[in-house]
Design a binder for these strands. Structure first.
Length: 516
RNA sequence: GCCGUUGUAGCUCAGCUGGUUAGAGCGCUAGAUUGUGGAUCUAGAGGUCUUGGGUUCAAAUCCCGACAGCGGUACCA
């Protein structure tokens, strides 16, 4: 039994004003880029029916399979596949506390949203033959995953900013995703040395697997192993495809005992390194071997089209590359897939250099609403992991955003409250954030310590002395902080970091300090 | 889940092969400073050494279990 101990749930965080400012920056810049490509912003609920999201909770009121779920407190009718209420043998409608889930991404709610509109706009869900309507939206929101393992940049509650195009198979929409990611990261302020946009096509992989007779369970296993290439290297992959390997941790990783011939082919394929090859050269290399396979060839052709579009719009191989070893975990991708690898690193407490891996992901999933409505609707999209991106920007100290809190008006004497409020009002009229000190610890020392804690750039002091002289004292706290390294005596500080100005000159003096 | 590793003050850690009142730095609180954050100096508060058991005259220290953290590994829509 828990006591009433104030503490956060593991994997959840309190977000500081500084972090919020960086998050805000990221979503504003990315959102504007999405908007410029014609995506419109939608929001959907954080909670959905569990079966709409595609994860079903058997009968436990707990999180399982990485999704937070619980029973709806309200009883609602049970519906059949056609949307009709289900009744028991006596003709009474069945009621149930349906499972609700916190969304684990923004794509599943999108598919529910799109499917719901389609369902409602067609008569009793008669949508067997139709041409899917085009829908483009972007969405910013918090998602929840029950992760067992929490690293820097990996949380249980985190934000994504997502954009998707639903209702087209046009490969230009996929090429566009590369451009959008590139533009968005650029707008956020990342230069090309800090990330690489990797592109591959699931068709190439499935064509390849087909050629090698790798199907079903084996295909999933091989995919998983290839996904670990970054982590365990080509030799590690080779070992896991064969009879396994011994991990440095001492654990033995069981191999899948693929035949030698297939392993050689796969390793040869994976040895074509994505980052070091221009896209054109990569396509040439890829067309050498398996192009007699239909699916493989189709995938390759799509990559060619993407390449050609990107080239004619000036998106070179310096930022967007083809990487045949890119697989992405999710099974639902059907065509081009995308992932942005952050190249930034930081040094952890133990002195090890570390990165956070991928900061964006996406791809084409033509089965978007198949599970819900049974029809194929092509869709393609991607999303930026806002928290993870912010985390690596902060950890790698590349974020140049400096946080500045509000100006603080100190309170000497409550009888002067009207004066303080007037000054505050005047500053606000000039769009300068400001607060009057209301704390119960009244000493000026306390008030300045408070100003320090909220990162005030300026403290304004007004007491009897100033009032008589018709002036206010302005203390430049940032300057004081900068000088704190080589401080000799208090009076000298005061002389440099503090000035008295006539009340009428307050605004311009404050603005001057804020600008510097 | 599995393997490894760690668990001493709010934080980072020291505490040798078990031996009387468990230490440091930072932080915190107060004072030097009758109206002044960050420097300096002084003083103070704060620990049943994660927890349960065992060995011993004696355990923070040795042994076993539990729990938690970290590293790796597995899983990941």
């Amino acid at each position: 039994m828990r006591g009433i101990i104030p503490q956060k749930i593991k994997g959840f965080r309190d977000i500081t004003p500084l972090q919020n400012q960086l998050h805000q920056h990221i979503i504003e810049k990315a959102g504007q880029v999405y908007k410029n490509y014609g995506f419109e912003q939608w929001d959907t609920p954080v909670l959905e029916y569990a079966d709409c999201l595609g994860k079903y909770m058997p009968d436990a009121d707990s999180a399982a399979e990485g999704v937070y779920s619980f029973r709806n407190p309200e009883q609602e009718p049970v519906l059949d596949e056609k949307g009709n209420r289900v009744a028991d043998t006596d003709g009474n409608f069945l009621m149930e506390n349906h499972f609700l889930s916190l969304r684990y991404d923004l794509t599943a709610p999108l598919s529910r949203h799109y499917a719901e509109k389609l369902w409602n706009s067609s008569f009793s869900g008669q949508i067997s033959s139709f041409k899917p309507p085009l829908f483009r939206r972007y969405q910013y929101g918090t998602v929840y995953r029950f992760e067992a393992k929490l690293d820097p940049g990996r949380f249980r509650e985190f934000r994504q900013i997502d954009f998707d195009t639903v209702g087209t198979s046009d490969i230009a929409a996929d090429a566009e995703i590369c451009m959008i990611l590139s533009d968005a990261l650029n707008a956020i302020g990342l230069d090309k040395s800090s990330y690489v946009i990797k592109v591959n096509n699931r068709k190439i992989l499935s064509g390849l697997f087909h050629e090698l007779n790798i199907t079903g369970e084996k295909e999933a296993a091989v995919t998983r192993i290839i996904d670990k290439l970054d982590k365990i290297g080509i030799d590690g992959v080779k070992a896991e495809l064969a009879n396994g390997r011994k991990d440095p941790s001492g654990a033995f990783i069981q191999g899948i005992n693929l035949d030698i011939n297939s392993i050689d082919k796969l390793i040869g394929f994976l040895s074509i390194n994505g980052i070091s090859q221009p896209r054109g050269a990569m396509i040439d290399l890829l067309s050498n071997e398996f192009s007699n396979n239909e699916i493989y060839a189709a995938g390759l052709k799509e990559l060619q089209e993407i390449d050609s579009l990107l080239n004619s719009l000036g998106y070179g191989s310096d930022g967007i590359v083809f990487d045949p070893s890119l697989v992405r975990g999710m099974a639902y991708y059907t065509g081009p897939i995308f992932e942005v690898q952050s190249l930034l690193s930081y040094t952890d407490a133990k002195g090890n250099k570390r990165g956070v891996g991928s900061i964006c992901g996406g791809g084409r999933y033509d089965g978007l609403v198949k599970r819900l409505l049974g029809v194929d609707v092509p869709a393609t999209g991607a999303s930026i992991g806002v928290d993870r991106l912010a985390e690596i920007l902060t950890l790698s100290e590349i974020s140049k955003i400096e946080y500045s809190g509000p100006v603080l008006i100190t309170v000497f004497d409550n009888s002067l409250m009207t004066e303080y409020q007037k000054i505050a009002r005047e500053l606000r009229a000039n769009n300068i954030p400001v607060q009057v000190y209301y704390g119960v610890q009244k000493g000026l020392k306390k008030q300045l310590a408070y100003a320090d804690s909220i990162k005030s750039p300026i403290a304004i002091l007004l007491g009897e002395d100033e009032l008589k002289a018709g002036v206010v004292t302005i203390r430049n706290l940032n300057l004081g902080t900068r000088m704190s390294g080589d401080i000799q005596n208090k009076d000298e500080w005061k002389a440099k970091a503090q000035q008295q100005v006539p009340l009428a000159g307050l605004i311009s003096a404050v603005l001057d300090i804020l600008k510097s």
